[in-house]
Amino acid sequence: MRIMMAALGLAVALGGLPMTDTARAQTAMQVAQSGDSVQPRRARPRVRIYRTPDERGVYPSYNPGPNAVRDCTANLVQEYRPSGTVIVPRMNCYWRRG
């Protein structure tokens, strides 16, 4: 563990040293050579989505009115599953005038 920490500290210390002129020239040449073969990235085409005013993501979409009340009934129903029969809650709701 100490050897790894010493190696990491040495790498950080060497990376922090100022580069000589020959090292800068070599780095610049490598960047120039690698830059010639790389294609510039193109922007992805944008897709516009046109929605109608009625389309809100809720089906069916209707306005129940200002005084509407939600009326729900709940009961338990048997469901047949591979692991065996289970009892699950079910709820049915609708809007009515209040």
Rank of each mutant, 00 (worst) to 15 (best):
R97C: 04
T20F: 06
E79Q: 08
M91F: 06
G57K: 03
C72R: 02
S34Q: 14
R24M: 11
G16T: 01
N75L: 14
G9W: 05
Q33L: 12
P66A: 10
I87M: 09
S37Y: 05
S61R: 11
M1P: 08
R2F: 05
T22S: 15
S37K: 10
I3L: 12
V47F: 05
A74P: 00
E79I: 00
V12H: 02
Q30R: 15
L14G: 07
R48I: 10
V69Q: 07
C72A: 04
R2I: 10
P89V: 02
A74T: 15
S37F: 05
D54C: 10
V38A: 09
V47N: 07
V31A: 13
R51G: 08
R46Y: 04
V77S: 03
M5V: 15
G35N: 14
D36C: 08
D21L: 12
L8P: 00
T27C: 11
Q26Y: 09
D71C: 06
E79H: 05
P64S: 01
P89Y: 01
P53T: 03
P89A: 04
S61A: 15
V58E: 06
V58L: 10
G98K: 03
V38W: 05
G35Y: 03
R81N: 08
A68Y: 05
T52H: 15
I87V: 15
Y80V: 06
R41A: 10
D21T: 12
I3Y: 09
A32E: 14
L8D: 10
I49L: 13
S61G: 07
I3M: 09
C93M: 06
V38Q: 08
R97H: 10
T22G: 04
S37N: 11
Q78W: 04
D36N: 11
C93H: 04
N75P: 01
M5S: 15
P60H: 00
M19K: 11
D71A: 10
L10W: 06
R44K: 14
A74D: 13
G9C: 14
T27F: 08
